[in-house]
Design a protein around this nucleic acid. Sequence first.
RNA 1: GGUCCCGUAGCUCAGAUGGAUAGAGCGUUGGUCUCCUAAACCGAAGGUCGCGCGUUCGAAUCGCGCCGGGAUCACCA
Length: 580
Amino acid sequence: MKDIIAEALSEAIELSYDDVQTLLTQPPQPNMGDIAFPCFQLAKKIRKAPVLIAGELNDKLNLRLTDSADPFSRAVERIEAVGAYLNFFLRRDTFAEEVLRASIAAGDRPGASDEGKGKTIIVEYSSPNIAKPFHVGHGFSTFLGEAIANLYEYAGYNVQRFNHLGDYGTQFGKLIVAWRRWGDVEALNKAPIQELTRIYIKFHDEAKIEPELEDEARRAFTRLEQGSEEEMKLWQTFREVSLEEFDDTYDRVNIHFDNMNGESFYAKMTPEVVTLLSEKGLLIESEGAQVVDLEDYGLNPCLILKNDGSTIYATRDIAAVLYRDRIWNFHRNIYVVGIPQINHFNQIFAVMEKLGMPDPERNVHVAFGTVRFADGVFSTRKGNIVLLDELLDAGVAHARAIVEESHPDLDDAEIEEISERIGVGAVRYTYLASGRERDILFSWEDILDYEGDTAPYLLYTVTRCASLLRKADSAVLKRLEKHSDEDAALLIGDDEQKVLKEIVQFPESLSAARKHYEPSMMIRRLMQLARAFNTFYHSTPILRVDDTALSAARLALAQAVERTLKAGLRIAGIEPVDRM
RNA sequence: GGUCCCGUAGCUCAGAUGGAUAGAGCGUUGGUCUCCUAAACCGAAGGUCGCGCGUUCGAAUCGCGCCGGGAUCACCA
């Protein structure tokens, strides 16, 4: 209906349809109208006071409202000029019809599209280090990356989920040396990462007393690089047992990667990078190392080869970009990696540009903040790190306590399933709800608060919708099936209209979230929709009305809300529940 | 020190092309369950948008300068 207004305005004034469209906004209060057109810009153009313009436009467009055959009069109820604003009040019945019709047509995938058809998008995220604990910090990249991947998939892109494992580097030399001295096979089988962490810490403690260990580790890594069988075998074991443990977590949060090529995979391709760079004359010597000068980008030189001739992570990342472009010819190559690596990616992308990569802006660093703890209490007895699984467990346990209390009728398996979804969903939500570049401040108090701006609130709203549909009587359900416009036109109450407005804006929030790699933009919209629905739910009887048509209409609205919330939650990676 | 980011209610955050009276949630406080699930709803209190100057008809938003906090600045990733 916005389009009809934009069209009418562009006919009435000297602005194109698109210009008008972008100027249209929403008034701050619903009683001021549904759509507003500010006349300031126009005032500059035609050199007339904006208040005067608003008044003249008001007179002009009001004439069209008298013609009942005019589609404009079917969309617009009345127009008011307030100051420099021209405020349009939509016809509520027409609006309700249109929103419900669109929602039904979109089905379970509101806002989905095929805009990305034939385009491949690589999203690199999670990327834990082998032999290191998967802690709450990894949760950020993991959940943010998955949500971004889902957003693009929803718009029809061919999304490739990459997990760039940290499975290469001198620390593996240390691990090999440590394992030979202090490794315990039984402990490794029982809790692999815990055991590997133990010997790694021990290595550092011992190296303080016995510095030769460092050299030994370096030699071990060199042998590993050269493919020595014995070292390779150990490395492979460390990698496998770590992955098995990571997979438990990935299964739990239902995240699955298409590609698990870690750094070791790209390390093999680094000679090619060195050749290419030197062929293009980009490689220069500096302090014994080989670097690419990036002064024209305002960046420090990018180190390619260390003074001992070995490669560095930048070299491997460049190899990865080249490889990925060759194999996938990607439309975007997205790195979901923390803010501290901003400089690193600026360098990599600058080198790609120097190498003459077509459209280098296809490479994107989606940076995010740090996970911090609000209080000292937020840690385990073992140390200052909290495993992601521990955080999820705490969330689920808290959810279970509430579910058990409110649903004594459910059996254990059901309680388990529901609690798991709520608890895990609550944790994921806290990672996604704020702008990604902000640090996340975790406190047990907030993470276990399931009221207000939380996933459980959204989930609870879904269960209300589901419950209504379960309890509706057959006459109403039968009427609901027909989805008639006449019924939809009954949804003209303030609270009903507010809900409809939120539904309309969901698809817009999806494209905004995609454009900015910012799932929170969608999440906030979901939250507003849920709040609008809950207000409506309290103020307005849905099943307890005698009028079957009205009941069916309101139920249709609840259905539309449920579809929208579920779709958004799933994109966020949060699995909805039917009751809680 | 150079570069970049941040500073909005007691706390956590929105305010993504400069527009109407700066908004949510938590917390505080007062109400609402014989009635579609109270993980809910309704009301109240709470702000010199870090400070100053500037651009503009109009600035939380843009520019400059301060103050405070953070990240980063090659042989780790």
